[in-house]
Computed example of a mutant assay.
Amino acid sequence: MQAMDTTPEALLDRAARSAPARALIADPDGSFARHYNRSSFMFPHGIRAGDGFDVPGVAALAERLPQTDEYVYWSNGPIDVTARWEQGRAEKHSLQDTVRNIAHNNSIVILKHTEQDPVLGPILRAFLSEVVDLSGPRMRDDVVVGEALILLASPNRITSYHIDAECNYLVQLVGDKTLNVFDPSDHSLITHEELERFHDGDYNGAVYKPERQEDAQTYDLRAGHGVHIPTGAPHWVRNGDNVSIALSINYDLRSVDRMSRLYRFNNRVRRFGARPTAPGVSAWRDRVKLAAASRLIRLEPPPGTAATWTPEHRT
């Protein structure tokens, strides 16, 4: 069989020929607007591995991206559902070796800000736009920036239990996985104290509770389908017996930024013995906290500062 040409010129030509003249998402029953950032659901999509999202295409993308933490992350070696994000970051393998041997090395590679890539970016920006269009004005008015990450993972690789600050759509392109998503509104599962730690910088703040596993919504996620994961919904993943390639389509939201500031403030005052009310319990308390937070807490630049896609500037 003839080897695929992965030179930049050939990849650009393939991207041009696969430019999204077709709809990329099907939503016949209005699930995107109905469930937006509240509950998970599965949906079909039309992005194909042949659009440049196969292993050679992803390997070429990894070479094109800046080799900094802002754009690439990888982890080598076995982990379990309770592993922290820094586990496996001793970088026993280089990024290039990790990608080249992904079928055998029990690793995950995350490529960030891929919507900016000249080869794969057009179809990813189109997908970002379609999600917002299907979700309607409530999402359009809420989005600050959007970003597309590409996830390349070994057979049977686990992605540990965690939550995200972004509104997420996990889209399977190659292989399959079992995705476990928990209810973000169940604060006996994901407590306000865990959310405070997370929003104050501890990305391992969510604590897996094995006795609650049966409460997860479990999805058999295969190529051609995606699942919406709302902000703050705990989830974890086990890949199938094959290399997996997936997209993580993320949106930073104004509403979440406000909530995050409240949780951060609550975490700071809890250290001094206070018992703060959770966000949303009292509107006037929230207003006071936000005003105090703006004076007392130095707000670092939000993560993802390299992201550039917005609903108003889609290209």
Rank of each mutant, 00 (worst) to 15 (best):
H192F: 08
L262F: 04
L262R: 02
P303K: 00
R268K: 13
D69Y: 10
T310D: 06
D27T: 06
P137T: 09
L111F: 05
S18H: 13
G121C: 11
L11C: 09
A165G: 12
V207Q: 02
D141W: 00
E147S: 14
P230V: 10
G52A: 15
P311Y: 01
E196L: 00
L262P: 01
E194N: 02
H225W: 08
Y73R: 01
A165L: 06
V109K: 02
R34P: 06
G121F: 09
M259Y: 06
F265L: 13
Q87D: 01
A83D: 00
H313T: 12
N101G: 12
L134I: 03
H35D: 09
Y73W: 10
M1T: 13
A26G: 10
P122A: 12
Y71T: 15
I245K: 01
E312C: 05
Y71F: 15
H93F: 12
G52N: 11
A90N: 10
H45I: 14
A33K: 02
D142A: 05
R125W: 01
A33P: 04
K289T: 04
D13T: 13
G50W: 00
A90T: 13
E196T: 02
E312W: 08
D142V: 08
N267F: 09
E166K: 12
L128I: 14
R17V: 09
S260I: 05
A274Y: 11
V109Q: 02
R285D: 08
V288E: 00
T114I: 10
F198I: 00
L290K: 07
H225D: 06
A223P: 01
G226H: 03
M259H: 04
R197E: 03
H228I: 09
E166I: 05
S39A: 15
G205N: 00
L152R: 02
S107P: 08
D27L: 05
E196Y: 01
A10F: 07
L189P: 03
W236M: 06
D257M: 14
G224L: 04
S129D: 13
L61E: 11
I47E: 05
R314I: 14
T218I: 14
P302M: 07
A206D: 00
I163H: 00
R270W: 05
F198T: 02
S107G: 09
W284T: 12
Q96R: 14
R268A: 14
L299M: 14
E214G: 12
T277I: 04
R212W: 06
R48A: 15
A21H: 11
